[in-house]
């Protein structure tokens, strides 16, 4: 009888555990679904942003870069143009990227000093973007199918309930990372923190997002991303001075034949 009572108690408690909101959320949420939702919010039809990048070295010295990026996703393919506005030495430089059918980018670079548009070999995904702690792949829009996801846990980060999801590249995906761990806000599907690991699974860098606000209906974006290299302790702060989502964009701004006209 005693054993029976114990079993009953356990059964009741188990039911309670099952029906508690946390358990329900945990049981009903897959990592794929969370990431799909988060990436869906990133892959908007058009986006324009003006980004101020502050590169801070170990001694606290700062350098500033300002770049305007416009991107468009049509039929699953991304096109983007980045125009560099500051400092003066790179002002007017523009980089156009077209994603091909094979998922790889074709890139053209317009340099005002040369006055011509050059086709450039696709940068290695892990290369530094403008000397910052960002890699080129960090500024590319994520594709759901390029990674496999695993739900690690649910925990609070900076007062917000988050899913912690581990992403590992699928075979054949060109990336410099061994895995990432992302803290995704449960309610808003926006990443608040991401840890990057190298191929040997050593921590590489961490990015923290701040100033999150709604930039379009249901779409939340961070106004500031701070990338911290865990190897060099250098830091890159990306301040979004402007974010425009889903505003109409002329397709011709991505036309490499027109790049020189924008000088």
């Amino acid at each position: 009888m005693g054993n029976f009572k114990k079993l009953l108690l356990i059964a009741v408690l188990s039911s309670a555990a099952l029906t508690s909101p946390h358990t329900m959320a945990w049981a009903g949420t897959s990592a794929d679904a969370v990431m799909r939702q988060a990436i869906k919010h990133l892959r908007v039809p058009t986006e324009q942003s003006r980004i101020k990048m502050i590169l801070v070295n170990r001694r606290g010295q700062k350098r500033t870069r300002i770049v305007s990026i416009s991107s468009s996703t049509t039929k699953g393919h991304d096109r983007s143009v980045a125009r560099f506005n500051y400092p003066g030495g790179i002002r007017g430089t523009a980089l156009v990227s077209h994603e091909g059918r094979d998922g790889k980018d074709t890139q053209w670079l317009f340099m005002p000093v040369l006055g011509r548009t050059r086709r450039i070999a696709t940068t290695q995904m892990g290369d530094s973007f403008m000397g910052s702690e960002l890699a080129y792949e960090d500024i590319k829009t994520l594709r759901v199918e390029d990674w496999s996801y695993k739900m690690l846990r649910k925990e609070r980060f900076s007062k917000r309930p988050c899913w912690v999801i581990e992403s590992r590249p699928v075979a054949g995906h060109d990336t410099s990372y061994g895995k990432t761990e992302t803290w995704i806000d449960v309610e808003l599907s926006v990443a608040l923190k991401t840890m990057f690991f190298d191929k040997e699974m050593r921590p590489l860098k961490v990015v923290v997002s701040q100033g999150i606000e709604q930039v379009a209906t249901g779409i939340w974006r961070a106004r500031r991303h701070t990338f911290i290299s865990l190897r060099t302790k250098k830091k890159t702060v990306m301040d979004y001075e402007k974010i425009v989502i889903n505003a109409p964009l002329e397709e011709s701004i991505f036309d490499q034949r027109r790049l020189a006209q924008w000088r």
Partner: peptide, 22 residues
Amino acid sequence: LVAGELESGPVFAAGKPAGSST
């Protein structure tokens, strides 16, 4: 490092806009 960074500003911007303002 993360904790130090979070001290520099809030995770959410003050006065969250309610809708699209493109």
